[in-house]
Amino acid sequence: MTRVHDMGGRFGDGPVQRAAGDAPVFAEEWHARALAVTLAAGALGQWTLDRSRFARESLAPADYMAFSYYEKWLAGLADLLVAQDVVSRAELAGAEPAPSPLAARRLRAEVVAGTLARGGPVLRDGPAPRFAPGDRVRTRRPARNLAVTGGHTRLPGYAAGLTGVVERAHGCHVFPDTNAHGLGEQAEPLYTVVFDAAEVWGAAEAPGDTVSCDLWESYLEPET
C-alpha cells in the first residue's frame, strides 16, 4: 500500500551522513535556485502544498531513490507544471514557450518577504472534535487514502493499526487526503497521538520511549 517516501522504520540505510562544520545553507548554487523556482511557481496558485507533496511522492521509486533532495523537488515541479497545464510537454522539451495567461499572478520581488512571512495557515473552522486529550484511539489500517486509490495520505505506514493516546488537539486542519486531489479542504480535527515505541516496533530501545504523529480524526477510531 505504501509509496517509496513512506520510509519511517525502514532498515538498511546506514549511518546518518552529516556535513562537517558550518555547512552552507545551500550546498550547491542550483539547490538554492531549485528551492526558489519551486516556491515562486507555487505562488502562481495552481496547486496546493498537499498536491506538491503528492507529486514528489508519486515519482517512480527508482527515480525517487536515485534523485537527490532538490532533484526530487525539480522532478515534482516539472510533473506538476504539466499536470496543471501551466506548461506543455513540448515546452518542457525545449519548444518555443507561449506566453501564459497566469503571468499576472507572477510573484514579484517586492512582495516576496511579505508572502513568505504570511505563509499559508491551514487552521479552519470545522466539526467539533470527537476525541479529547487522554482518549485511547486506534489508527486505521492499512494507511491509505480512502477517496483516491494510491492517493496522498499523512498516516505513515508504520503508524497504521496501532493503539495510542491522544495528547493534544490542534483544532481543525485542512485534510491532505482530499486537498491533494482537488477534492476540497474538508478540514478535520487534528491530534497529536502518542504511541509506545515497544508497540510500534515490537521492542523499544529503552522502556518508556515513545513516538508521536499528528493525525487527522478520520485516521482514528476509538479504542475501548
Binding site: 499523512r154 503508524a159 487534528l190 518508556g208 513516538v211 499528528d214
Partner: peptide, 9 residues
C-alpha cells in the same frame, strides 16, 4: 525517556 515527534501534519 526519548520522545520522537514525527511531523506528519
Amino acid at each position: 525517556r526519548v520522545r520522537v515527534w514525527d511531523s506528519t501534519a
